[in-house]
Computed example of a mutant assay.
Amino acid sequence: MAEIREAAEAMEPALALLRAGEIVAIPTETVYGLAGDATNGAAVAKIFEAKGRPRFNPLIAHVATMAMAEEIAEFDPLSRTLAEKFWPGPLTLVLPLKAGSAIHPLVTAGLDTIALRMPRGFGARLIERLGRPLAAPSANSSGRISPTTAEAVADDLGDRIQLVVDGGATPVGLESTIVKVEDGRLRLLRPGGIAAGELEAAAGAALVRGAKNGVEAPGMLASHYAPGAMVRLDATEVEAGEALLAFGPRRARNAGAAVAMRNLSEAGDMREAASNLFSHLQALDRSGAKMIVVEPIPHDGLGEAINDRLARAAAPRDSGASYK
């Protein structure tokens, strides 16, 4: 089983594993990431293996400085403006991959672009010490609920990795927002920890939503972020035996019939709801209910990202590769 070590004591053990081509679960401000040297193909392959992640789903490469980012990708003026405004932080930029970059092709899933992010905290210090970017998707089995605590990582991946760095509960609780500048326009590929309105204000232009060419970035598979239970959205009534993911002060009809209930935010606060989303889904999944029903959540601000994750959690689950 994986060892869980406090962040204050974990730097040297994490570095030793990464330098040896192993993978390590680390805290970031968004969710916990499963990190490996992005220039080492064997290490990147271990990420895919541990997660059961489909190889056509690209990974985010995490950097510690703009100088490191510029060795990997070509920055247009708008992307640079966004990096200067929001890095370090929960924003991922999809950029043209620079010729001769040391990033291993497994990270990009064969695309000619690279998804880059600059994290805060332990992850940034780790990358700076390593001197190389880290590929670090969420530290969970592919398609399942993203972890926001070290314990959630260990419960899921503890028999597949050696070390989980414990930095406490993640403050944002949602994955990063992913954007791409295309033909001078800013395209939102995945809503996340930075609301669309903040990006539009910084860019001085409206966002275009969705990808033009299928899966261009992580988190774009139709079915993703899913618990073991099925999920029903916009529920106005709870049936016997269901678990309830609530929002705000008012309850769905027959809420008392729920076998378990968690409220994302009693006050209807979107930041609180975002930070609680994955941990509350995990708690309800452990209740044994076959169905988790979700009360309606507004789509404004961070609600866009919350509803995106819930829609993917509720999507049909056929034999897609996300669930290996």
Rank of each mutant, 00 (worst) to 15 (best):
A152E: 15
N307W: 04
K324Q: 10
V294E: 02
F278H: 14
E6W: 13
A311V: 06
T30V: 11
D234E: 15
P218I: 04
A67M: 06
R312V: 01
S79P: 09
A217H: 11
A201M: 10
A169M: 09
N140L: 05
K46S: 13
I26V: 15
V294S: 03
A257M: 14
I60V: 15
G197E: 15
A246H: 15
A246S: 14
A229Q: 00
K212Q: 12
V165L: 04
M1C: 03
M118F: 12
L302C: 08
P54K: 07
I306S: 04
A115I: 02
E9L: 14
D285Q: 02
G301P: 00
L221E: 12
S319D: 12
A73F: 12
A8L: 11
P119R: 06
T177S: 02
S265W: 09
S176A: 09
V24F: 08
T148L: 04
P119T: 10
E84P: 01
M68A: 13
K212D: 13
F75W: 15
E70T: 09
A314P: 08
P90S: 11
A154H: 11
F86Y: 13
A14P: 01
A2G: 07
R262I: 04
A38L: 12
L78P: 05
A289R: 05
M230S: 15
T81Q: 14
V181Y: 04
V24R: 05
S275F: 00
G123M: 13
N40Y: 06
P316K: 07
G33H: 09
A258W: 05
D159W: 05
A201T: 14
A42I: 13
R5M: 15
G173W: 06
D156W: 03
N140Y: 05
L15H: 08
R251A: 08
A109R: 06
A7M: 13
A289W: 01
I178R: 11
A152M: 14
V165R: 04
R120P: 00
V164S: 06
N307F: 00
T108Y: 05
N140W: 05
S141H: 13
L189R: 11
F278I: 03
E71F: 04
E12H: 03
E49D: 14
P137Q: 07
I60L: 03
I72H: 08
L130T: 07
S322K: 08
I47R: 12
A69S: 14
A2N: 06
I306H: 02
G168P: 03
A246L: 10
L174Q: 01
P227S: 07
A226L: 03
I26C: 02
D156E: 13
P171I: 07
A274R: 03
M68G: 02
K212R: 15
G33K: 08
L106A: 13
Y225E: 00
A321D: 14
L18H: 08
S146Q: 04
A274N: 06
F86N: 09
G123Y: 00
G214R: 10
A313M: 03
R251P: 00
I292L: 10
A313Y: 02
Y323W: 15
V44C: 08
S146T: 08
K180T: 01
L189T: 07
M118V: 10
A69Q: 10
E49K: 15
F122E: 04
V153H: 04
M66K: 13
